[in-house]
């Protein structure tokens, strides 16, 4: 305090009222696990399987973040623009944490994994690479993913791998908000105008086929008892919660068959190549550049 130089004693008369150090314009970064902390920590994934699992989680978040960030400056409202940007940045934060951790098993950084892998090396789900479409499509994709990630991270908080548990605990608070955001819009669009309900039904029909992949067990999960969550075990609760939200929104679960997707094995739709081209071009053109 500069007051001490003039010999003034600090005023303690208000110390008993709340947080004495607080001000009406306080801005602090707060404390939370950051990707930089994970990159610095000594702990690496116990084996290759744990690293590959962290890569699954990170790739989903990374591609969803890249898709969502396309809304910036294109949102229907300035306020919604910021909301979608926030969600994109949250997802990017989760991706950075998971990729930083996975990379430690292979001596690679988050940037190596994000910018210098080829399309077939990405293990993300087909749902997250689907185009943004109209606002309803982005909301339906967001609802599907937020419900899924919320249940996944709720369970991963108890993972035997401490780093995955810690990243999940931080991500869970943020996904909690993503879920509420998607739910509030589903309610408003479903019960809004004839046009908004029509667009929501169209978006549900279009994206429903990609939801089956979310619950597909892979041989990798057999190797990770106690560390990973078996995706198929999330299905019942996901269905139940989705049905509840759609019911309240006067929408229905579409009757369209599931699509065959093998994103986890590196088989992607034509969309991912374009996403990666845009995401990776700068880092590849100027390797090692900082800005």
């Amino acid at each position: 305090m500069s007051g001490t130089s003039t010999g003034q004693l600090p005023d303690h008369s208000l110390d008993s009222f709340g947080d004495a150090a607080a001000s009406a314009t306080r801005v602090t970064p707060g404390n939370a696990l950051r990707p930089e902390d994970i990159a610095l920590q000594q702990t690496a994934p116990a084996d290759d399987a744990v690293a590959r699992y962290a890569l699954h989680l990170g790739d989903d978040a990374l591609i969803l973040a890249q898709r969502l960030s396309h809304w910036i400056s294109r949102g229907p409202e300035l306020e919604e623009d910021v909301a979608l940007g926030n969600i994109a940045l949250d997802q990017l934060g989760h991706a950075r944490s998971f990729l930083s951790y996975a990379g430690k098993a292979w001596g690679q950084t988050e940037d190596d994994l994000a910018y210098f892998r080829e399309e077939e090396d990405f293990t993300s789900l087909h749902l997250v690479e689907q185009p943004n479409g109209d606002f309803a499509e982005t909301m339906v994709r967001g609802l599907f993913m937020a419900l899924y990630q919320h249940q996944l991270y709720t369970r991963l908080v108890h993972s035997a791998d401490e780093t995955i548990a810690a990243i999940s605990a931080k991500a869970l608070k943020e996904v909690d908000y993503h879920l509420e955001h998607a739910e509030l819009w589903t309610l408003r669009l479903g019960r809004g105008t004839e046009e908004s309900a029509h667009r929501m039904r169209r978006a549900l029909d279009k994206l429903w086929p990609y939801t089956a992949e979310l619950f597909q067990d892979e041989p990798l999960h057999d190797e990770l008892e106690g560390v990973a969550v078996r995706p198929s075990t999330l299905r019942a609760e996901w269905d139940e919660q989705l049905l509840d939200i759609l019911d309240r929104s006067e929408l229905a679960v579409p009757e369209v068959p599931a699509a065959l997707c093998w994103g986890r094995r590196g088989e992607h739709s034509e969309h991912l190549g374009y996403i990666l081209a845009e995401m990776q071009v700068l880092a590849r053109k100027h390797p090692g550049a900082t800005w």
Binding site: T25, T28, N86
Partner: peptide, 21 residues
């Protein structure tokens, strides 16, 4: 701007408390 009170609180959270304010 927000369509209703509930969304206004959510938008306020995004616009005015994102730096831990």
């Amino acid at each position: 701007h927000a369509p209703d009170a509930e969304m206004a609180v959510r938008n306020a959270r995004d616009l005015y408390t994102r730096r831990n304010e």
